[in-house]
Amino acid sequence: MSQRLFSALKHVLLLGVALGIIAACTLPRGAPLQREMTKQKQGEPAEFAVYQVTKNLLPQIDRWPSDPTADRHWLRHGGATSVAITPGDMVNLTIWDSEVNSLLTTTDQKSTKLENIIVSRNGTIFMPYLEKIHIAGLSADTARQKIQNQMEQIIPSAQVQLSVVPGSRHSVDLVGGVASPGSYPLNDPDGHVTVLGLISQGGGVSDGMDNPQVSLTRGSKVYQIALKQIYEDPTLDTVVQGRDKVIVASDDRYFRSLGASSTEAIIPFNRETISALDAMSMIGGLQDSRADPKGILILREYPPSAVKSGGPNHQRVIFTVDLTQTDGLFSAGKFMIHPEDTVMVTESPVVLAETVIGLFTSTVRGANTAF
């Protein structure tokens, strides 16, 4: 056998060995190929649906059930809250009397103070000579006039001054997310303390928050909104009420970044809405040496109700984005990422081909050395 023929047979044999090794095992890679992710099993029910993000698909997606976190409720500004006296408030009275033989004052003292009078559960306070007077539900001025009218029946010249220190029912708990959390009394005389005003009293929002969210608990209901939206729309700066609880916290929504992207991580939402194009920027773009710009995949799982109500064909959905096409780029800018989506940047087939060629070349070199 000639040397040339032997060399040719050797290379064919080595190529077969290399291809056999590749076929028998999976080469180590940092990301899948697009065809691997979107391939369905033959003869079995579909495990997921695949949609390419284009301008024709966007109107269809808009009719599907939206991100459930986008349906959060909030209260509009509304009017001032009632400043009526409630049980638990503290009342301070100063009673002036110019009579010489006053029942309440002495010759050298023209006024007397009755301080720290707690409004009882049934809405009354106790006063000397008048006993119990019901003042709950009245404004401070109306309560003062009522007390004075009754006082005048026994002391015609009496003049009454009244001030109210709000109790727990007239305070709001600023629970967290600010410099000075705590319980803040609603002592604005007009009953006009708003969410932004309350946050300001608490020293402002803590540093380092991603897209701060405001939660307001009133009774058994919880309302939530992005702080930025309140800044931008004054009608959303709602007036707080006694016993409200307000919390400022970072947006807890996130999406995942995997594959041949510059960043593989949990990415928090730093704004209310994030498009697929925004997501590409947030993850640092694609790895130039590995990524397939035609194979950006967005994996999402819808609830069963979405499929039944005219949504996607399957609960599990893979959206594909082609960044090499103008339509793909523009459409990616209008395709919204949902919380807990997975953005998978697939690997280019060229990378696999280069790996195979490199493996074959290494095998040939090793064989030549052995022979």
Rank of each mutant, 00 (worst) to 15 (best):
V343E: 00
D278V: 07
G328T: 05
Q150L: 08
G191R: 05
G79K: 11
S331P: 01
Q60F: 13
K132F: 02
L9V: 10
I283P: 00
T86I: 07
D108L: 13
I21F: 13
F330D: 04
V240G: 00
N92T: 12
N92V: 14
T263V: 13
V91G: 00
S362W: 14
T54Y: 08
P68C: 09
V164F: 01
I298K: 08
A136Q: 01
H314F: 13
H170I: 00
R35H: 12
K221A: 13
S111R: 09
E99V: 12
F6L: 15
H73V: 05
T69V: 09
G366Q: 09
G16D: 02
S262T: 15
V351C: 03
V178D: 01
S120L: 09
L5I: 12
F335N: 02
S305N: 09
S2T: 08
R218V: 01
N368C: 11
E131N: 03
V246K: 01
S206M: 13
R300K: 08
L258S: 10
S250D: 06
S262E: 11
A158D: 01
A367K: 03
D244N: 05
E131C: 00
M280F: 14
N101Y: 14
I133R: 00
R29A: 14
D173V: 05
E301M: 06
R300V: 05
V17C: 08
P59N: 07
I318D: 00
I274M: 04
D288L: 11
I357S: 14
E272L: 13
S275W: 13
Q150S: 12
S98L: 11
Q153S: 07
V343N: 00
N122T: 07
L359E: 01
A23G: 03
M1G: 14
N101M: 15
G167Y: 05
P234V: 10
R253S: 06
L352H: 03
A49H: 00
L186D: 01
N101L: 15
L15G: 15
S171Q: 11
A291Q: 02
T38Y: 07
D62Y: 11
Y223S: 03
D207T: 15
V160Y: 08
H11L: 12
R29P: 06
P65R: 09
L103D: 02
S120G: 14
K308H: 11
T142A: 14
T26H: 13
K113N: 14
Y184N: 04
G204K: 10
G259I: 10
Q201V: 02
S348I: 06
P303C: 06
A18F: 14
S163G: 09
P339S: 04
L103Y: 08
A46K: 13
G311P: 07
T94F: 10
F360Y: 15
P304A: 06
L258W: 15
L57Q: 05
G333S: 10
K110Y: 03
Q161P: 03
D62L: 15
